[in-house]
Design a protein around this nucleic acid. Sequence first.
DNA 1: GACGCTTGCGCAATCGTTTGCTCAAGTTTC
DNA 2: GAAACTTGAGCAAACGATTGCGCAAGCGTC
Lengths: 340, 340
Amino acid sequence: MKDVAELADVSVTTVSHVLNKTRYVDRSLVRRVETAVKSLGYQPNALARGLRRKETRMLGMVVPDNSNPYFAELARSIEDACFECDYNMILCNSDEDPTKERAYLSLLVEKRVDGIVFVASGNDRSGVQAVLQQKIPLVVLDRELKDTKCDSIVVDNRAGASRATQHLIDGNHRRIGCVGGPINLVAARDRLQGYQDAFTKARLRVDPKWIQPGDFHIEGGYTAVQRLLDLPNPITAIFAANDLMAIGVLRGIGARGLRVPEDIAVVGFDGISLGKYTQPPLTTMAQPIREIGKLATELVLSRVNGERKEPRIHRLETSLVVRISCGTATQKRAGAKRET
Amino acid sequence: MKDVAELADVSVTTVSHVLNKTRYVDRSLVRRVETAVKSLGYQPNALARGLRRKETRMLGMVVPDNSNPYFAELARSIEDACFECDYNMILCNSDEDPTKERAYLSLLVEKRVDGIVFVASGNDRSGVQAVLQQKIPLVVLDRELKDTKCDSIVVDNRAGASRATQHLIDGNHRRIGCVGGPINLVAARDRLQGYQDAFTKARLRVDPKWIQPGDFHIEGGYTAVQRLLDLPNPITAIFAANDLMAIGVLRGIGARGLRVPEDIAVVGFDGISLGKYTQPPLTTMAQPIREIGKLATELVLSRVNGERKEPRIHRLETSLVVRISCGTATQKRAGAKRET
DNA sequence: GACGCTTGCGCAATCGTTTGCTCAAGTTTC
DNA sequence: GAAACTTGAGCAAACGATTGCGCAAGCGTC
């Protein structure tokens, strides 16, 4: 920048003002500066600027694993929203490891990101507290941290799971298995609860053996479905607490030589885009992934810009996407989208 | 930091040296500094440090779309390698748009990342040139930029595609369709060439109608396979130039009521982890994704640390992963891994 | 006891920007 | 024509770390 100033024969102050259009500068000087910038191939140093301005135009995002399609799509939507606002996104994979989580949060604070989008995996709150203490805006996704003063965005897991299960019941299924998620996650517990709600509402009973624990990964769905298929009085449908496990379920059923939906109906949860092309296409309770990303970014950036609203929990609705795997695609249901 | 120094009653110099262990400091002072750091909740400012040290411990990565499983896994492997070395990764989605590519590269330069891992989508070289001109280490993935002085990592697409096709020929298929990628990508052209090589080597002819253009996305595979299935003299096997299209192919075949591998055999390319759980599991020519990520990071960081070797093209081998979709899983082949 | 070495620490410059303050020149106003 | 504004631009002090250099005290040597 000093070089630019020298070449254009003006002060660095003027160069700065020209670059930022932050005060009036004579046209001829502007031109001189601009040609100097071009000829030197000058690019401003964001570090120095950030140091002075106390902003970095970077957001941190920490997810358990960005190669999980759900988080991949979430990260993508956040990154898009960042790009819109000339922000960059630092991506961190926590592997659901509280130690890594804390390490990353601390690193992000050191890097002085303007805000953080955090998909918490465990129950550890110390890392988040440390961030908030530094007055860095943070929004938690997929999880409500009680007694913690920060925004969070969640979907109505319980209602969604209930409606998904309801859909199977409406399809005349009575013995419906559930492949649940890790019980330490509220999201998983809520979805399990929703599954049970649907039975209660329909005045049906659920056999505890129908409920199989999973891990929110494909493998978990694959192994869990084996146990369900081994049941003496086998189930006729399965609600998987997320799409990844649903994919494992589909594969597990296929490996047994059974067919979906003729032999077993399957419904998932999340609405990852891959579900459109599973074999058969997956009926699922979709989360509004792009909206979540957009809202998260807006929330963080509004606080970056001085917003002082009381933090709150934003609860979004899910929507049923009916495809083939549930076997009721021909049946019309209010509020459910059908896809080809 | 000034506060810490004051509280510990030492100079900022000493605080700095204690924090970085960069010179001997008396034990009692060290303790005073450490307690001061704790009690103030002090976290160093990476901006200031970076400004002075001229390093940010951040790498930039630009990919076409991080929700594409292949890039997701690639990004993941790079991020892992970064974490190992206490680096952070800024993730950018170019959408294969040269304008966005340039915008991101320029932003990364401004942010003064220490290095860049770049998955080029088009042929645009101006952005890369600008980066190299600023002496920022950059490694290009998946693509060799001719006459450009930077490292690149590619797999042997042609040989890989040839072996994949060969595998189908060995399975007694003679009429094998090919769902190719966007012809502006060398990777796509090479794989197409490899497909043809296999025929030449087997002294067979390939009917031009068997070759259908695709887009490296699921949809492209889905629509391309329709055209192949409509052929008057239908094909019995398909080589898809990447796994995503192979998934579309599987679904397209399924939608027709045909079965894989009984009616049509399918082989993909990339080795994304999802392939293990498609219906049926996908035989594929796998890229060593994790090695690519590791090597890319090593290459970049070695140059960050002053390495001055002549840039070169690193060519990695692919490996055939035989699963169910090719219909020859029972057949033993040298050099091919079989999975359960 | 003077000299030189070693040891342990602080001073102050520096990294590359932004920005409050100042100031000269030009323009009104009365 | 002098006082009071206005206008356009530069000076220099931050921002928060790192680091070359220097200094004082302690110690050994002759």
